[in-house]
Structure formats: structure tokens, C-alpha cells
Design a protein around this nucleic acid. Structure first.
Length: 396
DNA sequence: TCTGGGGTCCTAGGACCC
DNA sequence: TCTGGGGTCCTAGGACCC
């Protein structure tokens, strides 16, 4: 007779993932402020790639030289030396250039990050098969039934996975092991970088309650502001409120969820596979465009977006029944329109035609900053020859 | 100092059907 | 003909996450 296994869920988060991959490629940048930036236009991508190519001859180059080109890009990630200057992710590149003009800017290379992503996930799957993808640099892992997964509350297995990933890729990660996903996610931040944190059910009050509500995965800026207005700043303060009062303030579903989250309750399973719900492409223009004045250019971009979405659908083996568009106006307001059709499609011309009908229904007086095309209501088609089928590949 | 791109899930009203 | 209720789909918007 053995005791029932204690539920042990791990959240693993790669440390400064994009920047770490770039440092493997350019070791001479170690210790220097480096930012990795998105360049929204093709031209900017080409320029910044040409710039990064220079690194071989000019190991240290100035961000300031590029700053005049970077326009509307934002920072995807920054190394710790760059963060010391107040530079952070989602910040506009122009602002970053002002805060830290000596920083080195590298273009985002998603293809390379995806290669590393696949490698570290394969390492994990070789050790613990119940893994849920949460994006390019994050996973949940169910340790509960893995041999050794209970030793030291999961610390031993976490250490093994960390070491195996480092040996295979040269990259470090941080792991939180806890009774569920919600707490594991918070715990993986406790000892960053290259850290492990183990939280047992009885530790929730001491280790979770002092944290800000914003640390709960699912509490964003809006909810946090409403909580602050109610005088609720920490998770402990949230836990002290009655379920009724939270339901009163946030509605039946959201209020009850907040209450459960504060008490560390979360029964969600680690999902090893998932089907996509939607596929989309969107682009921010180099300058704001007007539906009438820039009709031709807009039409060209629109058609390209439809073609890209169609290609994505074909490559991944899906077709969708609902075609939609997204507009972002110059004042950042967003409008969406969508329309369903009788049969799922992956055809660029049909998508273009239906998306065109959607566009006609949207207000087009104001200048546009962004245009997007989306297909939802996806159905898997018969697998294309040579189409990837492994769960990890399916997501990337 | 003006803020990318690709997603998921939830809500809510109206249409429509039983 | 009137009334009510439940279920599902469609559409628009919003919060949030990586």
C-alpha cells in the first residue's frame, strides 16, 4: 500500500530567452546592454538585419546609429545590463534609444528562437511526458506520476530538467513546483534566473499572500486597477474578502475565480495537446493610412494579409468558416468585423472577398494604423503530405 | 515617450429554432 | 394567437497572455 501521490505541477520559464539565444550567437555581447527589437516594416527588418550582420566586423555598435531608422518598433526583450537603464519589453524603440543610447539593437529572429524552443521541449519530453506548451519559452509539466517527481517536493526532478536543458542548449531556466498551475507559475519567478522554488500546499499563506494581486496569472492592468480602488493590493487582502463581495464587484464568474485564485485553488489539468482556434496576420503601417487617400496601397496590403493567412492555413492543414478583419485607428481604438460562410475555406481569393465585405461594414473616415485579417472556426483538414504531426511541432 | 504580432477566453445582445 | 423558456449560432468588443 502506498500513499496517493501529491499533485506536483511545475512551471518552467526560460531565462531571458531571446536575449540568451542571441548571446550564444554573439558571445562578445556578454555584459553589454542589448535590446532585441521588433521592426514592424519589411524595410526596417532588412535594415536591422543588415545592421546585425555588421556585428562580425564591429562587435560593439551603437544603438543611436540605428535609432533614426527604427520608427514604430518596440522592444521584445532586453538583457539585464540594458534593463538597468530602465529599458523593458513592450517599450518603444525610440524611447529605449533615449534611455540607453549605447545599447546594441538586434533584430528579432523567431526562426532561431523556435529551433531552441523545440530543442528544450524535446529534452523535457524525454524526461517528463506530460507537458503543456505555453508559448516559445514556457511550459507546464505534471511531475505527479513521473519517477522521482515527488522527491523533495519536485526539486530533484526540476534540477535534472534544468541540467539536461543546459547541457543540450547552453540555456538556463527557472522552475516553480507547486500543487497547481496557478501557484507554479508564480513560484517560477521566485528565484530567477536559473532558480527553483518548491511550494507545498501549506506554504500558500506565507509565500503567496504577500504578493501583489497583479502577480496572479489572469489579473491584468484593468482588474488590478479595480482591485486597488477597492483597497485590495495583495493576494492576502484579496483572500480576506468574502466571495459574495467579490461576486458583487466582479460578476459571478470573475468574482468567484478571483476568490479561488487568492486561496491558491486551481484544478486545471496540464493539457498535452491543443487545437488552434484561429489564425491571423496583421500589420502596423509605416505611416497611418486613409481608406480613400491611400486606397491602392491599403488594398495591396490587405490582399497580402489574406494571402499570408491562406498560406498559414494550408501549411498547417486547417480551413475556417469565419473570416474577420481588425482595424486599429490612429487614436488606437480598435474595430473588428467578421462574417461566417457556409463551408470552411483556406482559399486566398475567397478570404479576400469575404474580408472585403467585412471592411465595407467598418467605419473608414479615420486614418488607420493597423490592418489585420483573421480566420476562426477552424477545422482540421486531411493531413497534408509531410505535414508535421508531433504535438510540439504542431504548435510551432 | 506614443504603444508589435499572434493568440485564448469571456460577455452580451439578437436571430432563430424547438 | 399569445406567452414563456431553453439552446445554439452569429457578431462585436474587451481583458489578458506570451
Amino acid at each position: 500500500m502506498s500513499l496517493p501521490s501529491l499533485r506536483r505541477i511545475a512551471h518552467l520559464d526560460m531565462d531571458a530567452f531571446f536575449a540568451s539565444v542571441e548571446l550564444l550567437r554573439y558571445p562578445q555581447l556578454k555584459g553589454l546592454p542589448v535590446v532585441i527589437g521588433g521592426a514592424p516594416t519589411q524595410e526596417e527588418v532588412a535594415r536591422s538585419q543588415a545592421f546585425a550582420g555588421c556585428l562580425h566586423e564591429i562587435p560593439v555598435a551603437s544603438f543611436a546609429r540605428l535609432a533614426s531608422y527604427v520608427g514604430r518598433g518596440v522592444i521584445t526583450t532586453a538583457t539585464y545590463p540594458a534593463r538597468a537603464f530602465g529599458v523593458g519589453s513592450a517599450m518603444g524603440l525610440m524611447k529605449a534609444a533615449r534611455l540607453c543610447p549605447q545599447a546594441i539593437l538586434l533584430p528579432v529572429d523567431f526562426a532561431e528562437y523556435r529551433r531552441y524552443s523545440r530543442r528544450f521541449k524535446q529534452v523535457i519530453l524525454g524526461i517528463a511526458p506530460v507537458m503543456e506548451d505555453r508559448g516559445v519559452d514556457e511550459v507546464y509539466i505534471d511531475f505527479t506520476e513521473v519517477p522521482g517527481g515527488q522527491r523533495e517536493g519536485g526539486r530533484v526532478l526540476a534540477r535534472l530538467i534544468q541540467k539536461s536543458i543546459f547541457d543540450a542548449t547552453g540555456l538556463t531556466c527557472s522552475v516553480g513546483v507547486a500543487p497547481n498551475k496557478l501557484i507554479a507559475k508564480m513560484a517560477s519567478e521566485f528565484n530567477k534566473p536559473n532558480g527553483i522554488a518548491v511550494v507545498m500546499p501549506e506554504d500558500v499563506q506565507a509565500r503567496i499572500w504577500p504578493l501583489a494581486c497583479r502577480k496572479i496569472n489572469g489579473v491584468g492592468p484593468k482588474t488590478d486597477a479595480r482591485l486597488q480602488a477597492l483597497g485590495i493590493h495583495t493576494i492576502g487582502e484579496l483572500a480576506a474578502r468574502s466571495r459574495e463581495s467579490l461576486v458583487q464587484a466582479f460578476g459571478k464568474s470573475h468574482g468567484a475565480w478571483l476568490r479561488d485564485a487568492a486561496w491558491g485553488r486551481d484544478e486545471r489539468a496540464v493539457e498535452t495537446r491543443s487545437e488552434p482556434v484561429s489564425l491571423s496576420r496583421e500589420t502596423t503601417f509605416e505611416r497611418d493610412l486613409h481608406a480613400v487617400h491611400d486606397r491602392q496601397l491599403l488594398g495591396q496590403i490587405f490582399t497580402e494579409l489574406c494571402q499570408q493567412v491562406a498560406q498559414d492555413l494550408q501549411r498547417k492543414g486547417y480551413a475556417g468558416r469565419t473570416i474577420g478583419i481588425k482595424l486599429r485607428y490612429d487614436d488606437f481604438r480598435i474595430a473588428t468585423r467578421d462574417q461566417s460562410i457556409a463551408q470552411p475555406t483556406q482559399d486566398a481569393l475567397l478570404i479576400r472577398r469575404v474580408a472585403g465585405l467585412c471592411l465595407k461594414r467598418a467605419p473608414l473616415q479615420q486614418r488607420l494604423r493597423l490592418l489585420g485579417v483573421r480566420v476562426t472556426g477552424l477545422e482540421r483538414l486531411a493531413a497534408a503530405p509531410g505535414a508535421p504531426s508531433a504535438p510540439v511541432d504542431a504548435l510551432f
